[in-house]
Amino acid sequence: MRAAWPRPAAQRVAALLPTAVSLLVVGVVWEAWIAVAGTPVYLVPAPSVVAVRMSVDPGYFLGQGAITLAEALGGFLLGTGVALSAATAMAHSLVLERALLPLAVLVKVTPIVAVAPLFVIWFGFGVMPKVLIAALITFFPALVNGVTGLRAVNPGALDFLRSVSASRREVFFRLRVPSAMPYLFAAFRVSIPLSVIGAVVGEWFSADRGLGAVIIVAHANLDTPTLFGAIFTLAVMGIGLSLAVSALERRILFWHESTFIV
């Protein structure tokens, strides 16, 4: 006999209804506004025009989107992996934290668009620079929240584990890592969309493939329907990734206090 979570599917669908309605309203108003004002298509295409452009060649947007998605995810995994390793070391050592945190802050405050061209010079025109830029942009949130989270243990639980002679390793895996999860997911919700931005920015500077490249080319040709198609694909990608993170969070953080507040 357990409480019924995760929430029933019907309830979750119902929760999405307001979002769907508001999106629909925006679409309709946009369409009507273009029709009434007679805005030329090279400035702003109507949603229907974008929809036609995308349905004519869905494979194109899917294919280019897949490339950008792969770069973003690769960067996310790389950046998060490195960040969490560093966070583990820093959470255990104040000296390391003092040594590494300023470097991380330096990385963070440097605008990503400023280093992107440099990465292209260093790492060529392949997938590499895009992944690295996406990794760079996702690094900091995971690092900071990782350090905070690994330290945010219940002192009583820590005392208890020590009182039954748990090793440092056991304290880490049984207490610190689970305690860090809420913090990590807070970071992921920020860094997952950031990773897409990183990949797109990377593609701008060495444009041959991916949605970033599509945008650059469409922009040069004043092909706004294609440009909007790319933007729309990116938006859908961002939403999908965020939903995936939320779904994972619900599964992993089922125990969190917020779950029990109805």
Binding site: S93, R151, A152, N154, P155, L158, R162, S167
Partner: peptide
């Protein structure tokens, strides 16, 4: 060791 978060160095 009882300050939360700073007790990392104090293993068993």
């Amino acid at each position: 060791g009882s300050a939360p978060g700073t007790a990392v160095a104090a293993g068993p």
